[in-house]
């Protein structure tokens, strides 16, 4: 494992920890899209089914278990926590996730490495992850809420994507025969969407700053 891959995994992990700590500390999930969080849970569950079939390393297993449990933990807070669930922007978070899930299912059935249950589900998870941030992006555009979704969360997610691209480049040049077109193309799309997300974040941050300036 190279340094880019490890740093990418760590920033991904930190982004989730930051979000959880924020929800726990402020007892608020305003500005956080439950739909995006649920899509991430679907992504992790469908991708990490191989926990039962293959063993890669202790690191790999621990990280997979962490991603699955932490995503369900966030969902639990937003749905069932007595105080946090009341701060959820239910009326604003209305993105139709079927528009993302259904095309991803079809694409995974058509374009995959091997037509088997586990492999198609893995491919589906790769496609779905690349667009799972969209409900969050729409919610941010609607509410211009930047207080709760901290700069740290957005920054860490963006850094995770950028580091994974560096990891692929590194592996491509150091590992003979290393090539994975599905992951590369989806990952590039995902990074592009995050750039968009980051753009809106900066715009709303500047807008808020202007509004809060003393006149």
């Amino acid at each position: 494992m190279n340094i880019f891959r490890f740093a990418g995994d760590m920033t991904h992990l930190c982004s989730i920890v930051v979000l959880l700590l924020k929800i726990e500390a402020t007892k608020s999930c305003a500005g956080v899209s439950l739909r995006t969080q649920e899509l991430y849970a679907v992504v992790f569950v469908s991708r990490y089914l191989d926990l039962f079939f293959t063993f890669i390393s202790v690191y790999n297993t621990v990280m997979k278990v962490f991603f699955i449990t932490s995503s369900f933990c966030i969902i639990w807070y937003m749905r069932h926590h007595r105080i946090v669930s009341q701060t959820y922007d239910r009326e604003q978070d209305t993105f139709r996730v079927a528009f993302l899930v259904v095309p991803c299912i079809f694409l995974a059935l058509l374009v995959n490495h091997e037509f088997s249950m586990v492999e198609v589900l893995w491919t589906f998870s790769i496609y779905l992850e690349s667009v799972a941030i969209l409900p969050q992006l729409i919610l941010l555009q609607r509410t211009f809420n930047v207080d709760t979704l901290t700069s740290n969360y957005v920054f860490l997610l963006g850094a995770y994507r950028a580091l994974y691209i560096l990891n692929w480049l590194y592996r491509y040049f150091t590992e003979p025969g290393y090539s994975q077109w599905i992951v590369w193309s989806s990952g590039t799309l995902q990074t592009a969407i995050y750039c968009d997300f980051f753009y809106y974040y900066v715009v709303s941050w500047r807008k808020n700053e202007r509004l809060s300036l003393p006149s």
Binding site: D9, I56, H113, E119, Q180
Partner: peptide
Amino acid sequence: AEPLKQHDEL
């Protein structure tokens, strides 16, 4: 046939 890829990334 090509051996099943081991998906070692997260």
